[in-house]
Amino acid sequence: MTATPAVDPIMDAITTAVALGREGGVTRAREDLLAIWADLGVSGDPLHRCVLAHHLADLYTDAAEERVPALPPGPYGDMVRAAVGGVNEAITARDTAPD
């Protein structure tokens, strides 16, 4: 016998935003996912944060935007952006280097 899964309003909201993005509402989907991200905060459920970040990245066409946009404003986001900055530069250099 299969148990009925528990309702997860955060996953439902993420799923709704992802579907919107796949249907062409990319800007609105990004806004919705960023709002959910802000609500989750740095102490949000790691599963929710991981799923959200993965799907949010899929909504960006520029690899540089894809890596850092979901970080929250403020000291935490600034700290992570500073740490990631060198990595982004290395990746960009690698991605644009001639073969």
Rank of each mutant, 00 (worst) to 15 (best):
V7K: 04
P98T: 12
L71E: 09
I91T: 05
G74M: 05
A19M: 01
A93H: 15
E89C: 15
M1T: 14
T2S: 10
A29C: 13
E23Y: 10
D95E: 10
L20W: 00
R81H: 10
A90Q: 07
L52Q: 04
R49L: 07
I36Q: 06
H54N: 10
V80D: 09
V51N: 09
T2M: 06
H55M: 13
V87A: 08
T92A: 13
L33R: 00
T96H: 10
T27A: 04
P98H: 15
G24I: 02
N88T: 11
R94A: 15
H48E: 05
D45L: 02
T16G: 06
A13M: 01
V68S: 05
G25P: 00
D78I: 11
D39P: 03
P75A: 09
L52R: 01
T2R: 09
T27L: 04
L40Y: 07
R49I: 11
E31G: 04
V51I: 03
P5E: 08
A53D: 03
R81C: 09
V51T: 11
V18E: 01
T15W: 08
E65L: 13
T96L: 15
Y76E: 14
Y76A: 08
P5W: 00
H54S: 01
P46N: 10
G24R: 12
V84Q: 03
A6M: 04
A63L: 03
H54F: 09
A53M: 01
A38K: 00
A38C: 05
R30M: 02
A97R: 13
I36V: 04
A19R: 05
M79R: 11
P75K: 10
G21V: 05
H54L: 09
P9W: 03
G24N: 00
D78M: 11
N88G: 13
L52W: 02
E23I: 06
A38Q: 12
D39C: 12
A19L: 03
A53L: 15
E23M: 07
G41W: 08
P69T: 13
A17R: 00
W37D: 01
